[in-house]
């Protein structure tokens, strides 16, 4: 596996045509670096869910990733409505998504729990009305 990598993707709110491209690119980066496929899948799933949250709920955001021999760290920071009640948002099935989002196959209240399930360390902070920062780490040394 090559040593380390770092990069940033820009995310635009409500851009459903491009939604998912950042996570797809991150997946390629990890594959090219030789990260084991099961780990790539976990990272890609977590990044995809986080990216969709930004697309659905925020105005704009960035996804920044750092990969070292020890870990994959991804930070997604957005400007938008933020999350009023994080505990509630973490509940499976709870969602504030409008119907048109649900008809696109999202907003089933599984995104955040799904991210947490796939990562080793998960941090979520938000200021209601300003934005949300989500950070996750997946350890590489164990694999």
């Amino acid at each position: 596996m090559t040593s380390s990598s770092e990069g940033t993707f820009f995310l635009t709110g409500k851009d459903f045509v491009k939604a998912g491209t950042a996570s797809g690119s991150l997946k390629r980066v990890l594959e090219d670096m030789g990260v084991p496929s099961a780990v790539v899948r976990r990272a890609a799933i977590a990044a995809f869910e986080a990216e969709m949250n930004t697309i659905i709920y925020a105005v704009a955001g960035i996804m920044h990733y750092y990969v070292t021999a020890e870990m994959i760290k991804v930070v997604i920071q957005d400007m938008g409505q933020g999350i009023e009640n994080i505990e509630l948002a973490m509940t499976e099935g709870y969602s504030t998504a409008p119907d048109y989002i649900r008809e696109m196959g999202f907003g089933s209240g599984m995104g955040l729990p799904n991210i947490k399930k796939n990562v080793d360390k998960f941090m979520l902070s938000s200021v209601s009305g300003e934005g949300t920062t989500l950070e996750f780490i997946i350890n590489l040394e164990k694999t």
Partner: peptide, 22 residues
């Protein structure tokens, strides 16, 4: 992994999801 996905949705997100979920 290595599943076949049957769905009613036909937007690009389905393909991106499929890619991410192998």
């Amino acid at each position: 992994t290595n599943s076949l996905l049957i769905t009613n949705l036909t937007n690009a997100q389905v393909v991106r999801t499929a890619d991410v979920a192998d």
